[in-house]
Simulated assay, not measured.
Amino acid sequence: MATLIRDKYEAHKAEVNARFDQLKANEEELNRIFAEIYNMVGEVPIEVEDKYVSVARVFDTADEIPESFKGNNYVRTMRDEIVSLISYAVGCMFGRYSLDVVGLVLANQGDTVNEYLAKMPDPAHVSFMPVADNVLPITDDAYFENDICTLFERFLVAAYGAETLEENLRFVADALSPAAKGTPRETVRAYFQKEFFADHCKTYKKRPIYWLLDAGKKGSFRALFYMHRYQPDFFAHLRTAYVHPQQERLRARLDDIAAAEDAANGRQKAALAKEEKRLLAQQTELRTFEEKVHALADQMIAIDLDDGVKVNYPKFGDVLAKIK
């Protein structure tokens, strides 16, 4: 049965806020009881300030948060809730979570899809399959079959139904960036390209479990992988299955521009020249990235999850995005 994320959000918000109100009322009732027991009515405060109530309270936007909540670390917004949903979706893409079972699924070093299927109640009918090779590309278009935005749409269909996909994408996009001028799909892709990793690092206190491969500021190639599923041959696979095809794609697009220039008018030529400059910069950036990936592939680096992110993350140099 098709479901709207908006309806789920409103129900969640009502439940969370009712819990907040109940806890606040309970704490104030306890204050009143103890004030009466110790004959201190009128001498000690009964009311509990909003900022001291230690459970979540959800507001649609940051602008709606009253001054009385300033300093409360449990306050959340609609965007926070949608970011959490996206994080869960990425977890399902990697197999850390599943729509079919509760709790963690793949969380042991070197886990694969085989271990995922072994934990499913019905391996022949899985609601949403994780990526087989532990790679989620985040490029400026859906170049790869397991493009992260494409998989996010598949997740929404699996979780909420195909009929509500467009409306759910619009709700997600509006929550992420209400003022965005592009389509919902463009907004979601921009979020994955520019903001997801920062939000993930914030959630995990600068110890991310999904690591971002980043070729550089020109955006020639980005991809996520899950540290628990990392294996020493990862970079060899990344190089041949992703980096090389992306290099070929850039060469093909530059060839197309060169072929189109002869028939273009003045304005078209200017646009083509601008695009050519952008692609050439990406090509140079990706060439350097490929050399670094090649070196890592040759090293076959192993990691030990017990050493944690702080020890393992620096092993891969600057092919990984900086943790800020």
Rank of each mutant, 00 (worst) to 15 (best):
S220T: 10
H244L: 15
L151R: 14
M1D: 09
T77A: 10
K13F: 03
Y160N: 09
H125R: 12
A271E: 14
R251T: 12
A62N: 08
I323H: 03
Q282L: 09
Y74A: 03
R287C: 05
K206C: 13
I138M: 13
F192S: 02
A190E: 09
A132R: 15
F144I: 10
D233I: 06
N31I: 11
A11N: 06
A18L: 12
Y143N: 06
D80T: 07
I5F: 03
G95K: 10
D318E: 12
Y313D: 07
A259Q: 10
K13M: 12
D140M: 09
L250T: 00
G161N: 08
M93K: 02
R76C: 05
V53K: 00
F196A: 04
R96C: 01
A198G: 08
H200N: 05
K194I: 01
A162K: 14
R19G: 12
K194T: 07
E276A: 14
E10V: 05
L224R: 11
V41E: 15
P137T: 04
V319Y: 15
A35S: 14
A271W: 11
G182S: 09
Q268H: 02
V48E: 12
N114A: 15
K194Y: 13
L296I: 15
A258G: 13
L156K: 00
Y210M: 13
K206D: 15
Y242V: 07
K51R: 15
R185A: 13
V53S: 00
E49H: 12
F171S: 08
R267M: 10
M93W: 00
A179E: 09
E186T: 10
V311M: 09
R207C: 13
L279Q: 03
I33S: 09
T3Y: 11
D111Q: 01
E115R: 08
L156M: 07
I301F: 10
E10R: 11
H125P: 02
Y210C: 11
D214W: 11
E153D: 13
F221V: 01
A180L: 02
F59G: 05
H200T: 05
V157N: 04
I5K: 04
L151C: 01
E47W: 02
E166R: 11
K310S: 14
A297G: 07
F59H: 07
R222W: 00
D174H: 11
G95D: 08
L156R: 01
N312W: 09
S68D: 13
N73K: 10
D111L: 02
V188Q: 01
E49C: 09
V41Q: 15
R79S: 09
K206I: 05
A223I: 00
E67T: 06
D50I: 05
